[in-house]
């Protein structure tokens, strides 16, 4: 149990390390030297040492508490995955992250932040493939508890072989939340830093910590649901491999315009719906 606390802190730092690796790989593909892989960890530390205040125009309670909520929900998600809890809760928290982004963006009163927040709201289409992939998983395993799903895979082998399109859908969902991805319209450069523009100092450090934890939890869920029980070191290795594959996609693709991003995600949702209906009828 105390081990869980240490694991929580490890997860946060390792998630940041994954984001660092992500940046490094993108840079190397684009023939830049790129930052060192631990840059994101340094980033979080650096922000926590910067001076901190609250913008005069901000709604101060919301401005501060949204940071607490951001870390809190992903801490909760971490423990849910660890306890083999309900998959719906994880995905609920994933969708709630949208509200967090919205809160970050709107609470400051800055127009850049506002656009970031509004974009995160209109990209709601990206969340629906998630539920479609849940449906596919349930059709096979008959349960929504991560513990049961992992146990099912011990018997019948990795789920990724059985429901590859569902795994692909969740991969796209994870991709959408990675920085520099074609779908990361919420933090594209024409709106400065998107929803995080006005959160600096300790607030930003908290956000970075949340991002690290979020990356770790999402990848852990993906591995638990589609690859089944793996030893700890193999899980870490799988996370790094998935991150690198995402980095390749990010390095080779431009960022889409908000309209295109939503269109492509909606198309994807449609395809997934057809797939699940097919599974439900013939599976």
């Amino acid at each position: 149990m105390i081990g869980d606390l240490l694991y929580l802190i490890f997860a946060m730092i390792f998630g940041l390390l994954l984001l660092g690796i992500h940046r490094k790989v993108i840079a190397r593909i684009q023939r830049r030297p790129g930052p060192p892989v631990w840059q994101e960890i340094l980033h979080a530390l650096k922000f926590s040492f910067k001076s901190t205040w609250i913008p005069q125009t901000a709604s101060d309670t919301l401005f501060v508490s949204v940071v607490l909520i951001a870390i809190g929900i992903w801490t909760a998600a971490f423990f849910v995955v660890l306890a083999g809890g309900n998959l719906l809760i994880i995905f609920g928290i994933y969708m709630l992250h949208k509200i967090v982004e919205h809160g970050f963006g709107l609470s400051s009163g800055s127009p850049y932040g506002k656009f970031g927040g509004v974009r995160s709201v209109i990209s709601a289409a990206s969340e629906i493939p998630l539920f479609v992939s849940v449906a596919a998983v349930v059709i096979f395993t008959g349960s929504l508890e991560i513990g049961d799903i992992v146990a099912w895979q011990e018997q019948a082998g990795p789920l990724i072989l059985a429901v590859f399109p569902a795994a692909l859908a969740m991969y796209v969902v994870i991709l959408s939340k990675f920085p520099f991805s074609p779908f990361s319209i919420v933090e594209s450069k024409e709106i400065v830093s998107g929803y995080k523009t006005e959160h600096f100092g300790v607030w930003r450090a908290g956000l970075e910590a949340c991002n690290g934890l979020k990356t770790y939890v999402l990848l852990l869920t993906f591995i638990a649901v589609f690859f089944g029980p793996l030893p700890f070191l193999l899980i870490l290795l799988a996370m790094i491999l998935i991150t690198v594959s995402i980095s390749f996609i990010c390095a080779f693709s431009p960022m889409l315009s908000p309209f295109d991003s939503v269109t492509i995600q909606t198309l994807f949702t449609g395809l997934m719906l057809i797939y699940v209906v097919y599974l439900g009828v013939y599976g």
């Binding site: 929580l8 870390i71 908290g206």
Partner: peptide, 15 residues
Amino acid sequence: VVVVTFPLFLLFLGL
């Protein structure tokens, strides 16, 4: 309790 206190701990440590 951890879910509530962990964010508080992180932020106030930074502050």
